[in-house]
């Protein structure tokens, strides 16, 4: 079961990573990268790192890729925008299919792994659970955690300063 799931996820991850660097259209390339991040989140689940799988989807597939797509849209030229409008039906169908496939994949994995025959009864004892990672994060790694906050604040200020026209 685990080998089979890993093989499928690994093949899809490699294929979408290859698509990311080969596709000429930047928007399609970014969508392939979003798909790759979802596949990596599935691979993290097979490694029983649930917290990081969710973080992968929220931070990478959510925040960072939305930022990348926003910049692509902001910097694209006029003719590319027309091409986007023409093919928007196809793109919507593509996005819908991918989202549906992802939901089915994750739901079937959860059902097969935890629904029919629960392997682990107490999820808090797993080493990748929110409990375990959070316990380490807020005790032994409290200072790096606070330092990350300062780093993110300076990154926000730096991004605003860099992208302002006149400072």
């Amino acid at each position: 079961m685990e080998y089979c799931l890993f093989t499928i996820l690994a093949i899809l991850a490699i294929a979408s990573a290859a698509l990311t660097i080969t596709l000429k259209d930047t928007v399609k390339s970014a969508l392939a990268l979003v798909f790759h991040f979802f596949m990596l989140a599935g691979i993290y689940l097979t490694l029983s790192a649930q917290f990081l799988a969710i973080m992968q989807i929220i931070v990478y597939a959510g925040a960072i890729m939305v930022l990348v797509l926003f910049v692509i849209m902001l910097l694209s030229t006029g003719d590319e925008n027309e091409a986007l409008l023409r093919k928007s039906k196809l793109k919507q169908a593509f996005a819908f299919t991918i989202s549906l496939a992802m939901i089915i994949l994750i739901a079937s994995y959860i059902t097969l792994e935890f629904g029919i025959k629960p392997i682990v009864t107490d999820f808090n004892t797993l080493n990748g659970s929110v409990n375990a990672v959070g316990g380490e994060l807020y005790t032994n790694f409290l200072f790096p955690f606070e330092a990350i906050g300062i780093l993110l604040l300076s990154a926000i200020i730096g991004a605003v300063m860099l992208s302002k026209k006149k400072i």
């Binding site: 990081l52 973080m55 925040a63 960072i64 910049v71 730096g158 860099l162």
Partner: peptide, 16 residues
């Protein structure tokens, strides 16, 4: 987790 946080900061600066 820390690598992800640094990657988020790097994304903001890189795109800027």
């Amino acid at each position: 987790f820390f690598v992800m946080a640094v990657a988020a900061a790097e994304a903001a600066i890189g795109l800027a």
